[in-house]
Computed example of a mutant assay.
Amino acid sequence: MDNISLKALAKINIGLDVTGIRDDGYHEVKMIMQTVNLFDKVSISKTADGSVTMATNLKFLPVNDDNLCIKAAKLLIDEFQIKEGVHIDLEKHIPVAAGMAGGSTDAAAVLFGVNKLFNLKLNKKALMERGVKIGADVPYCVMRGTALAEGIGEVLSPLPPMVKCPVLIAKPGISVSTKQVYNALDDCFDTVEHPDIDGLIGDIKAGDLAGICSKMGNVLEDVTIPLHPIIADIKANMMENGAVGAMMSGSGPTVFGFFNDNKTAKAAKDALTKTGMVKQLYLTTMFNNR
């Protein structure tokens, strides 16, 4: 095998709580992660010169060692002393800097692809262990599906598959600084409202979409929405147009909504398009790897 093409799937957070701040500055989290069928395309080809290079359709993305794809490829190539190199072509569709683990899922795809190309025989657990060296979300992006994430996001427990339903994903034309959001959270940590993650897990196990939507919560909304009120406007628009529930993913600014049926979801997509509030808008579905 000299080349491989892969889908790098996006994630949303059905629940996101921050439970503490560690001495090293990292935040302890308790999150429910869910993969959705929105993806970047990652193509990897062997090269003879031993270099690791990449190209992407978005000119503003770095294609040097700052890119997680490059870091992922070099991690395995260096560890296994591979003499050949790789070239990575990345076709981005997942919104960038949007709380959907776009960079992490691309890196996870590169780990998977390099493992296959060079027949390294690493299983999923081994890839996840290496992924955490690149970023806290990378192990989950290797794992995929529905999962509880704890620690700094790297302690993962599989959950039963999420209820299948249409998912509308909307990103306004703004970017959010994750560092700024967490710094703002630190300043008001004792006053924010923490979601009921355990109750949410119970509703996922019961397959109760209405219950899930009633308990969905993201503690970071308390700090991100005051900085970017358009997030609340998008949530409200989705709810007004039939969403069972709507919430910000990660540190934002992406908003997702769950719907009971495709007809309602399509109408909501059309209605949101007309507002001009969003730059990227996708109607997709849950991904389940089990």
Rank of each mutant, 00 (worst) to 15 (best):
M1R: 08
D2F: 01
I4Y: 03
I4S: 01
K7I: 04
K7P: 02
A10M: 12
N13A: 07
I14H: 09
L16I: 12
D17H: 07
T19P: 11
G20P: 12
H27D: 09
V29E: 09
V29M: 12
M33G: 02
T35Q: 01
L38Q: 05
D40Q: 05
V42N: 00
I44Q: 00
S51M: 14
S51A: 15
M54P: 07
A55Y: 05
L58D: 10
P62G: 08
V63G: 03
L68S: 09
A72N: 05
A72V: 10
K74W: 06
G85N: 01
L90E: 00
A97L: 06
A98K: 07
A98P: 07
G99Y: 08
A101C: 11
A108C: 07
V114I: 15
K116W: 07
K121F: 12
K124L: 13
K125Q: 14
L127S: 01
V132A: 06
V138S: 02
P139Y: 03
R144A: 07
G145R: 04
A149K: 03
E150W: 03
G151N: 07
I152Q: 01
V163T: 12
K164R: 15
C165H: 11
P166A: 06
I169V: 15
I169E: 04
S177R: 01
S177Y: 01
A184S: 14
F189G: 03
H194W: 06
I197G: 03
D198P: 02
G202Y: 03
I204K: 09
G207T: 09
G211P: 11
S214K: 15
K215P: 04
M216S: 13
L220P: 14
V223D: 09
I225W: 07
L227W: 01
I231V: 15
I231C: 02
D233W: 09
K235F: 10
K235L: 09
M239E: 09
M247Y: 07
M248V: 12
G252M: 10
P253N: 02
V255L: 06
F259E: 00
F259K: 06
N260S: 15
T264G: 08
K269M: 15
L272F: 06
L272S: 06
M277G: 03
K279S: 14
L281V: 11
